[in-house]
Structure formats: C-alpha cells, structure tokens
Amino acid sequence: MSAALVLTIGGLTTVGIYLITARSLSRIILGFSLISHAAVLGLLTAGGSPGPAPIVSGEAVTANPVPQALALTAIVISFGLSLFLLALAGRQHTLTGDDLVEDDIEDRAIAGLPQGENR
C-alpha cells in the first residue's frame, strides 16, 4: 500500500470535513467532492497495488478490476448527489438570496433562542 496514496486520502478527507462543516452550501458541496475523491481512492487502494489496466490483452497480471468497478459506481452516485445539492443550493438562493444553511427554527424556538432573521 502506497503511503503517498494514504496520505492523499487523509489530506482530502481532512480538508473535506473542514469544508462540510461550513455554513455555505457551495463549500459543503466542495467538501463532499473532496471526501468522495478520498473514498474512491480508498476503494482503489484497498484493491491492492496498481498494475496494467484490466483490459485483457495478454498480460497475465492486471490491476484489480473490482474496486475500479465499485469506484466507478461510487463516482457516478456522488456525481448525482452533488448535482442534487447544487439544485438545492440554487433553490435556497432563490428563497433567501444566499446558500447558507440556517439553524433549525423549531429547535431554536424550543431552546428559547431568537429565530433566524432570514424568514
């Protein structure tokens, strides 16, 4: 297992988590893209060391194709979800003029705190 890859995964996750804990949905989307990259790389790393592409052409030993297939599915799914988040951010922008995630009003009401001014 390549330490460089592991560190990349760790680095992407770190920055990703930092970004998703922000209030702005566009940062959150950015963060998720990074964490997804990390997760996909994690799957690949888990599959073993690199090798020739798993396209049968004579070479006996190729890279493990299974994690690649799994990773592909994962990429596509997180692609879809990123698009959905983008749409949500767009809707939030239409509604509030920004893409910030507000605190839940009911929870704030129960805590006796003043409620967000955005609504």
Partner: peptide, 20 residues
C-alpha cells in the same frame, strides 16, 4: 472544525492502513 477534520482524516488513514 480544524480539530474534527484532522482527527477525521487521521481516522480514515488509520482504518485503511490497519485493514490492509
């Protein structure tokens, strides 16, 4: 946020290395 993201990144690395 910095703390949680650092331990989060660390956790992922540890998990991956240990699993393998």
């Amino acid at each position: 946020r910095i703390v949680v993201s650092l331990v989060g990144g660390l956790a992922v690395m540890v998990g991956l290395v240990a699993s393998a």
